[in-house]
Design a protein around this nucleic acid. Structure first.
Lengths: 144, 144
DNA sequence: CCTTGACCTTCCAGTAACGGGAACCCTTAT
DNA sequence: ATAAGGGTTCCCGTTACTGGAAGGTCAAGG
């Protein structure tokens, strides 16, 4: 099975699959012409990764989970620990975002949105930062 | 006022302030020795930026908001439109994260976390992806 | 005058997780 | 022979910074 077939089968872009190989998450074999070959096992791994990534696990966490998955003797507790840690992070993010949403929602609510130059949103933003939290800048930033 | 004073006054790291100058968000003047000088106006801008960033506005949105803020004739509707768009994105993120949390929480709940090798979390992850959504990989990823 | 230490400067590299696109090879069909 | 549709590697760009090196500046102390 070639990479585009594997991509179709797992829902992952071919680029992503190549990337996963590059960083050592998977090791598909090669044919004589250099093409990657994906077996049933590769597909299982890729599906595992796709699902874990969809649940928000980082690549590093995915690496650990994948190793645990392939270790017949692993302890369930190890997996649980990673999942719990991730769950905590998700909770915190939801909390931050909810706070953002409430604050911003309140501002938007009080903004007429008409043609007049007065704007409660800008007024609030220009106030000197009481209650503002600096989260390291990037933690709450948007992507894409 | 030097950069470290400005940093202390705004809560932004000096590195970040230099970065904001580099990408053209602010234009502090320079002294003869090359040191940046921050005035009351600079501090207002930096506070504005810090607050907008804390609300999750992207740098690009911040740039627009800052321009609108400094435009005495701007229409309130312009600001409102940006804020609403951002609000939508926040909502969607919260939604995605909540879904993640619920799914992962359910898995963790059914996991004993003992020493035995059987693990419901891994079992679920290894199932073939029904109901899984591929969000473009990065949208839901963690940072830091 | 010299040194020390705390500032300040610029520049370069790295982060997470890919996506876009160029340049080029392989296979199959016409 | 050539065109289409795979595949490959490699490099750059993305976001919003952070860390660190190399070096200039300034005030105080000996």
């Amino acid at each position: 099975m070639n990479i585009s077939q594997a991509a179709k089968a797992t829902g992952l872009p071919a680029k992503t699959i190549r990337y996963y190989e590059e960083i050592g998450l998977i090791q598909p074999t090669r044919r004589d012409n250099g093409y990657r070959t994906f077996t049933e096992t590769s597909l299982h791994q890729l599906n595992f990764l796709a699902r874990a990534r969809a649940l928000g696990f980082s690549i590093d966490h995915c690496r650990s989970l994948l190793a645990l998955w392939e270790d017949r003797d692993r302890a369930s507790a190890d997996v649980r620990r990673i999942a719990l840690k991730h769950l905590d992070e998700i909770e915190e993010k939801i909390c931050d975002l909810t706070e953002m949403r409430d604050t911003l929602g309140e501002l938007v609510r009080t903004c007429d949105g008409d043609g007049r130059p007065d704007c409660p949103i800008l007024n609030s933003l220009s106030q000197s930062s009481s209650g503002r939290k600096y989260h390291g800048g990037v933690a709450l930033a948007r992507r894409g």
